[in-house]
Amino acid sequence: AEEIWQQSVIGDYLARFKNDRVKALKAMEMTWNNMEKKEKLMWIKKAAED
């Protein structure tokens, strides 16, 4: 689920960090860890469908 979420937001994060992939990935990891369980559930369901 986290991978699907990352694939959907990586472009936004890379743009925000001027294509600094290391910073973008760290920010994504922090965002994922801070997400509410119900927000993650949507992505977990999406992962299950694929």
Results as ranks from 00 to 15, higher is better:
Asn33Tyr: 08
Lys38Pro: 06
Met35Glu: 00
Met30Ile: 13
Asn33Cys: 08
Ala15Pro: 04
Ala1Leu: 03
Val22Thr: 10
Gly11Ala: 15
Glu49Asn: 10
Lys46Asn: 05
Trp32Asp: 00
Glu39Gly: 02
Arg16Glu: 08
Met30Glu: 13
Ala24Trp: 02
Ala48Arg: 11
Ala47Pro: 03
Asp12Val: 10
Trp43Gln: 02
Tyr13Leu: 03
Phe17Gln: 01
Lys38Gln: 12
Lys40Leu: 04
Ile10Trp: 09
Ala1Ser: 04
Ala1Asp: 03
Lys18Ile: 05
Lys45Cys: 12
Glu29Arg: 13
Ala15Ser: 10
Lys18Cys: 12
Tyr13Lys: 00
Glu29Asn: 10
Gly11Met: 14
Asp50Val: 15
Tyr13Thr: 01
Thr31Pro: 01
Lys23His: 06
Glu29Met: 09
Gln6Gly: 10
Asp12Cys: 13
Met30Lys: 09
Asn19Trp: 08
Ala1His: 03
Lys46His: 06
Ile4Lys: 11
Asn19Gln: 11
Leu41His: 06
Asn34Tyr: 06
Met42Lys: 14
Asn34His: 08
Lys18Trp: 09
Ala24Pro: 00
Trp32Gly: 00
Phe17Ile: 01
Asp50Gly: 14
Glu2Asp: 05
Lys45Tyr: 07
Ala24Val: 05
Lys38Met: 10
Glu39Pro: 01
Ala24Lys: 00
Asp20Gly: 01
Ala24Gly: 02
Glu2Tyr: 15
Asn19Tyr: 11
Ala27Pro: 00
Tyr13Met: 05
Gln7Met: 12
Val22Glu: 14
Leu41Tyr: 09
Lys18Met: 14
Lys40Phe: 02
Asn33Pro: 02
Leu25Ala: 08
Phe17Thr: 03
Ala27Cys: 07
Ser8Phe: 14
Ile44Trp: 06
Glu2Ile: 11
Ala1Phe: 04
Trp43Gly: 02
Gly11Phe: 11
Phe17Ala: 04
Val22Ala: 11
Ala27Ile: 05
Glu2Pro: 15
Thr31Cys: 06
Glu49Trp: 07
Met28Gln: 01
Lys18Val: 06
Ile10Glu: 04
Ile44Leu: 12
Asp20Gln: 04
Asp50Phe: 15
Ala27Arg: 03
Tyr13Glu: 01
Asp20His: 04
Trp43Met: 02
Lys26Leu: 12
Tyr13Asp: 00
Gln6Val: 09
Lys18Ala: 13
Met28Leu: 05
Trp5Pro: 00
Ile44Tyr: 12
Phe17Met: 05
Ile44Cys: 09
Lys45Gln: 14
Glu39Leu: 06
Ala47His: 06
Asp12Ile: 12
Val22Arg: 09
Tyr13Asn: 01
Ala27Thr: 04
Met30Leu: 13
Arg16Tyr: 08
Trp5Ala: 00
Ala48Asp: 08
Lys40Ile: 04
Ala48Met: 15
Lys46Val: 06
Glu29Trp: 08
Asp20Met: 03
Lys45Ile: 13
Glu36Lys: 07
Phe17Gly: 01
Lys37Phe: 15
Val22Tyr: 09
Leu41Asn: 07
Val9Trp: 02
Lys38Phe: 12
Ala24Tyr: 01
Leu14Thr: 03
Leu41Asp: 15
Asn34Met: 10
Arg16Asp: 04
Met42Leu: 12
Leu25His: 07
Ala48Leu: 14
Asn34Gln: 09
Val9Phe: 05
Arg21His: 11
Arg21Ile: 12
Lys38Trp: 15
Arg16His: 06
Lys45Arg: 08
Trp32Lys: 00
Glu39Arg: 03
Ile10Gly: 03
Asp50Gln: 15
Glu3Phe: 13
Glu49Gly: 12
Ser8Lys: 05
Trp43Thr: 01
Lys26Thr: 07
Met42Gln: 13
Met35Leu: 04
Met42Ala: 09
Phe17Asn: 05
Arg16Val: 08
Val22Cys: 13
Thr31Met: 08
Trp32Phe: 02
Ala24Thr: 04
Leu25Cys: 09
Trp32Ile: 00
Ala47Trp: 14
Leu41Phe: 07
Met42His: 14
Ala1Ile: 04
Asp50Leu: 15
Lys38Leu: 10
Asp12Ser: 13
Glu2Leu: 14
Val22Phe: 11
Ala15Cys: 10
Glu49Met: 13
Asp50Met: 15
Glu3Asp: 09
Met28Pro: 00
Asp20Cys: 04
Ala27Lys: 03
Met30Asp: 14
Ile10Val: 06
